[in-house]
Every structure is written in structure tokens, then in C-alpha cells.
Simulated scan of single mutants.
Amino acid sequence: MRAAAFESPGARKRRRSWDEVPRWQIYLPLSIYLVFTLIPFYWILLFSLRPAGSTSLVPWPMTFDHFEKVWTERAFGTYFQNSVLVGVVTLLMTTLVALAGGYALARFNFKVKRAFMLALLCSQFVPGALLLVPLFEIFAELQMINSLGSVIIAETVFQLPLSMILISNFIKNVPYSLEEAAWVDGCNRFTAFRIIVLPLLRPGLIAVGSFAFVHSWNHFLFALMFLNNQEKQTIPVGLNTLMGADSVDLGALAAGGIIAAVPVVIVFAFIQKWLITGFSAGAVKG
């Protein structure tokens, strides 16, 4: 009742018009969209669970032979561990560096700030394929070819510009007066940032970190270019090895796709609330 009392006439009018819409006009388009979205996932699940050579549209009798094959014979257990390591370390490095750079962009003024922001934005127009040759030369000089560190560094550098811009926008939404009040109480800048600003940035940090993890988990080019040893390869490269020149093992490929998709689905299932909050409401509540 209290919220309705302060509701503007325009908002009340829009709410009434929305309430008057028949429910079937809402649920029918959403159901059609959901069906078209889930069909590819069901098709992958079907090929991964039904026996080889079967043409049934229902995964029965159900078999897990394809999962066992890709996990043991095709070394997907090793690929999975490498992908987890690359994804987690990239998440941490991207978030920490973007947090420091974003704070500098949001709170300090310097002469080349606008030019620096423009350079960050323009870097997003550069395809990752154009970076392969110079990065390969750099990592070759550093003797980091065939090392997971090269992929981690490349992924971090590739994702930092956008992450830094997003974090700076979140920090700008935190009132500067909160930090000033902490300084008056005797806190230095770092302590004020840790106590006042950092807790309010949780939705933004989760949003940036989740996209850093998912991008590094799914990225194919850097892992293909910098990793030659099978024991160092990641899941996207492992999926590519399942496709031969003359034939494709659809069951094994589908099982590998399920293995690659499950961690991402789990991550988004747990952080969806923070993710939506981070991109819609910003970093400040109340």
C-alpha cells in the first residue's frame, strides 16, 4: 500500500494496461521461444545418451558409453582440468586488474583519461585472430609456448578493456561522499575502498568475473595456437579433435559438448541473481 501511494500516475497506468493483457498472449510466445531454444540441447542430449547407430527420438535404452569414451579414451578428464585452471586463474586476474584500473578511471582525473578510455573501447573492435601472430612471437621469446600460462595471459589481456570499463561504471555509481566520510573517520584510501566500496561492487564483480570465466572456458583460438601438447589442451580444442576429416563420432562429440556445457550452466544457475542485479541495478542498493 505504501509503495502504491507513491506510484506515479503513468506507472499505475502502465501497470493496469499490463494486467489487462491476456495471459496466453504472454505465455504462448515465450513457450514457442523456449521450444526452439531447448530443441538443440535436447538433440545433443539425445545423441550423447542413445547407443551408437540408433535412430530413436527418445534416449532409450540409455547408455553412458559415449561419456566414458570421451573421458578416458579421448582424455577429456585432462582437458577438463586444464579448462578449469585456465578459467579460474583468468577470472581472478581479470577481476583484480580490472578492479584496480576501474577504480583509477572512476576516481582520478588525468590528462590522457579520455584518450585512454577511447583506446579501451577501440580495442574491442580488434578480432582475436589478429592478435595470434604477435602474441605467438612474444610467448616464443618468453619460452611460454605450450604452457597454460600463455593462454591465461592472452585471455586476461583480451578481456581486460571491457572488464575495466564495466567496473569503472559500477564504481562511479557508488557515491564519493561515502569514501570521504570514511577518510574523516581515519581510514586511508585503501581501507575506505575495502570497507565501503568493495562490498557494494559485489554484483559488478560477479558479472565481470563470470563472463571472464565463460569466455576463457569456451575460447578456442588461443588454446589451439599456443598449446601443442595434448596434456596441455583445453576442452574446446579437445572437441575439435573429435571431428575427423572423413567422419564424425556424433555420440562422442555430443557427450563432449555436454561435459563442456555443464560447468557453465552450473555457474550461471548459482550467480543469476547477482548477474541480473549487476547489469540492471548497478552497484548501489537503497
Score class of each variant (00 low, 15 high):
Met117His: 06
Met117Asp: 04
Met117Gly: 03
Met117Glu: 14
Leu118Glu: 04
Leu118Phe: 15
Leu118Lys: 11
Leu118Tyr: 12
Leu118Gln: 12
Leu118Met: 12
Leu118Asp: 01
Leu118Trp: 15
Ala119Phe: 15
Ala119Arg: 14
Ala119Met: 14
Ala119Glu: 04
Ala119Gly: 09
Ala119Asp: 07
Leu120Met: 15
Leu120Trp: 13
Leu120Cys: 12
Leu120Phe: 14
Leu120Gly: 02
Leu120Ala: 10
Leu120Val: 09
Leu121Pro: 01
Leu121Gly: 09
Leu121Arg: 13
Cys122Gly: 02
Cys122Tyr: 11
Cys122Glu: 05
Cys122Leu: 15
Cys122Pro: 00
Ser123Val: 11
Ser123Ala: 15
Ser123Trp: 13
Gln124Arg: 15
Gln124Asp: 02
Gln124Thr: 09
Gln124Val: 08
Phe125Trp: 12
Phe125Asp: 00
Phe125Asn: 08
Phe125Leu: 14
Phe125Ala: 11
Val126Tyr: 07
Val126Gly: 06
Pro127Leu: 13
Gly128Arg: 15
Ala129His: 08
Ala129Leu: 13
Ala129Cys: 09
Ala129Pro: 00
Ala129Glu: 07
Ala129Asp: 02
Ala129Gly: 01
Ala129Arg: 09
Leu130Trp: 12
Leu130Glu: 03
Leu130Tyr: 15
Leu130Lys: 08
Leu131Lys: 07
Leu131Arg: 10
Leu131Phe: 15
Leu131Gln: 03
Leu131Ala: 11
Leu131Ile: 11
Leu131Ser: 06
Leu132Gln: 05
Leu132Thr: 12
Leu132Cys: 08
Leu132Ala: 12
Leu132Gly: 04
Val133Met: 08
Val133Phe: 12
Val133Gly: 00
Val133Gln: 06
Pro134Val: 07
Pro134Met: 07
Pro134Ala: 07
Leu135Phe: 15
Leu135Val: 02
Leu135Gly: 03
Leu135Asp: 01
Leu135Tyr: 14
Leu135Pro: 01
Phe136Leu: 04
Phe136Trp: 03
Phe136Glu: 01
Phe136Gly: 00
Glu137Ala: 08
Ile138Val: 11
Ile138Asn: 03
Ile138Ala: 13
Ile138Arg: 07
Phe139Val: 01
Phe139Pro: 02
Phe139Glu: 03
Ala140Cys: 05
Ala140Asp: 04
Glu141Val: 04
Leu142Lys: 02
Leu142Asp: 03
Leu142Ala: 08
Leu142Met: 11
Leu142Phe: 13
Gln143Trp: 09
Gln143Arg: 12
Gln143Ala: 12
Gln143Ser: 08
Gln143Gly: 03
Gln143Met: 05
Met144Trp: 13
Met144His: 03
Met144Ala: 12
Met144Asn: 02
Ile145Ala: 00
Ile145Glu: 04
Ile145Tyr: 06
Ile145Gln: 04
Asn146Phe: 07
Asn146Trp: 10
Asn146Tyr: 14
Ser147Asn: 14
Ser147Ile: 00
Ser147Gln: 08
Ser147Met: 07
Ser147Thr: 13
Ser147Val: 02
Leu148Asp: 04
Leu148Tyr: 10
Leu148Trp: 06
Leu148Thr: 10
Leu148Pro: 00
Leu148His: 11
Gly149Tyr: 13
Gly149Pro: 00
Gly149Trp: 13
Gly149Cys: 03
Gly149Arg: 06
Gly149Asn: 05
Ser150Pro: 05
Ser150Tyr: 11
Ser150Gly: 07
Ser150Met: 01
Ser150Cys: 07
Ser150His: 03
Val151Phe: 08
Val151Gln: 04
Val151Glu: 07
Ile152Leu: 06
Ile152Ser: 00
Ile152Thr: 01
Ile152Met: 06
Ile153Arg: 00
Ile153Gly: 01
Ile153Lys: 00
Ala154Ser: 07
Ala154Lys: 00
